[in-house]
């Protein structure tokens, strides 16, 4: 379903990803953990199509189609979603306008009929209520003045609206208090199904208490050096990375 093979990526001559490979099947949740600087966020950004990186080798396939030749917006409409570690604040664009533009772009790209404004509003209200997002928040400029929790819930709202096949969560737990973490994790769990897959990048095992992974990978120096099940995360929490990165 989502396959990354032999991906080598550099930034200004520094190799950040080094022959990185990962296969994600339908409905699977893969957690990626690793010390700072191991290339986790780079992986997320390269998958989503950020332009600051040079891909030297490898492929990123979604349902057999190579995403590397596609622009970020095309990757999104093909079904890839990146939940940002630091969602960007955009003054002057209301959250609602942004959501509408985004959803319309998806419908148009997939030859679906664009929702009427009342239907769109109904859909947004329904999905926001599930995430405890009130109306006033979506009328405010995108992420401007949002608390950490609001920003992350807004990311999950977008995920819920855009209905992606593969979701990459880049340290979604950072900056969240315990209640916000639970709410965001519940939002993610509600979106889990047999087709939709997740790559959850995190530093802390705590998130994985809520979002149960099928696989846990340790990433170091731009590649996966160890793979296990959820017990690997517990092990890391106890003894750190030292046993793996010698």
């Amino acid at each position: 379903m989502f396959n990354i093979s032999n991906l080598t990526v550099s930034v200004e001559d520094n190799e950040i990803l080094n022959n990185f490979s990962l296969d994600v099947g339908p409905g699977e949740v893969h957690a990626i953990m690793g010390p700072n600087g191991s290339g986790k966020s780079t992986l997320a950004h390269v998958c989503a199509g950020k332009e600051d990186y040079t891909v030297l080798n490898g492929e990123i396939n979604l349902n057999g189609e190579d995403l590397l030749d596609l622009e970020a917006d095309e990757r999104s409409t093909k079904g890839l979603f990146l939940a940002f570690q630091y969602p960007i604040e955009i003054p002057g664009v209301t959250t609602l306008t942004f959501l509408k533009s985004s959803l319309e772009a998806h419908y148009k790209a997939n030859n679906k009929e664009v929702l009427s404004t009342p239907d769109f509003m109904k859909l947004v209200k329904k999905k926001s209520a599930e995430l405890n997002i009130d109306d006033s928040m979506i009328k405010r400029p995108l992420n401007v003045g949002f608390s950490g929790g609001e920003k992350k819930r807004n990311e999950i709202l977008q995920m819920a609206l855009l209905d992606p096949e593969i979701c990459i969560l880049d340290e979604t737990d950072s900056g969240l208090d315990i209640d916000a973490l639970r709410l965001v994790a519940e939002g993610v769990n509600n979106l889990r199904n047999e087709k939709r897959s997740f790559i959850v990048i995190t530093h802390y095992q705590r998130l994985l208490d809520y979002i149960k992974p099928d696989f846990v990978h340790i990433m170091y120096n731009g590649k996966i050096i160890e793979t296990g099940d959820s017990s690997l995360a517990l092990e890391l929490e106890k003894s750190g990375y030292n046993n793996y990165i010698k």
Binding site: E71, D73, Q158
Partner: peptide, 18 residues
């Protein structure tokens, strides 16, 4: 900002417009 909007499927031209 441009990348954020594009990552949500909004084509570059529309993203710049916004």
């Amino acid at each position: 900002s441009l990348f954020y909007l594009k990552s949500r499927g909004i084509p570059e031209e529309e993203a710049k417009r916004l």
